[in-house]
């Protein structure tokens, strides 16, 4: 049998006992459980429910996405990312981690790149949200319906599976808007919030450099 008894775990040993005697079949299994109560440790004893769970109230939320206003009935717990993907069918914005750790959900809000997974939709009312579906519209010169960054990504093969790609592209457009990237090293650093598991980084950097060069010519 396995057990850890250390000073740090002693308090939790008493909890399971209390829980067991609440069960209807307690008398039948009490002996077995008693043994385990002493000998085992459940990492964190499940706390007893203290209230009846309920759903949050919904609000009418008006989002302006790619220049179009949309009214949605949303509970506050809906992230901007889930609002786009699940409530507006704008699935170009990707969910890769849902915790701001990969950049796949990058969109532009008032021209600035952010992680759509870490903000609530309701907090983005009144802002101009741009997703990959609308990124070409933000650019006056979009031949073939593509933003220069999109075109450069195709030409430099700056993606493989394509899943991080919309986030990379929105991030790259954000980077251009910021105007802080002066060197290749700057581009690498300022694109580091977008993980590409396929490892297309060198091509991504070349695609962005190509567009920066076009702009400065």
């Amino acid at each position: 049998m396995y057990y850890i008894i250390s000073r740090r775990t002693i308090p939790s040993l008493f909890v399971p006992f209390a829980k067991i005697i609440e069960q209807p079949q307690a008398h039948l299994v009490l002996e077995v459980h008693l043994l385990w109560t002493v000998m085992t440790l459940s990492a964190e004893a499940p706390p007893k429910a203290t209230h009846t769970p309920s759903l949050p109230p919904t609000h009418t939320v008006t989002l302006t996405v790619n220049g179009t206003e949309t009214q949605l009935q949303l509970a506050p717990w809906t992230s901007l990312l889930d609002a786009l993907r699940e409530y507006m069918d704008l699935t170009g914005t990707k969910k890769g981690c849902d915790h701001g750790q990969c950049g796949a959900c990058t969109v532009l809000v008032d021209g600035k790149r952010i992680n759509a997974c870490l903000t609530l939709a309701i907090m983005q009312e009144g802002k101009q949200i741009t997703t990959i579906e609308g990124i070409a519209q933000t650019c006056t010169d979009a031949p073939d319906g593509l933003h220069p960054i999109q075109k450069a990504f195709i030409d430099y093969d700056a993606f493989q599976c394509g899943y991080c790609t919309p986030g990379q592209i929105c991030s790259a457009v954000g980077l251009l808007n910021e105007g802080k990237a002066k060197t290749t090293a700057d581009i690498r650093e300022l694109m580091s919030g977008n993980i590409c598991r396929c490892g297309a980084y060198t091509n991504i950097v070349q695609a962005i450099e190509e567009v920066i060069n076009q702009q400065t010519v």
Binding site: G92, I132, A136, I154
Partner: peptide, 17 residues
Amino acid sequence: NRVDGRDKVTGKAKYAA
């Protein structure tokens, strides 16, 4: 160039979810 490139850079490529 990848034949699926345009779908991938425009967000039109649809994945399982």
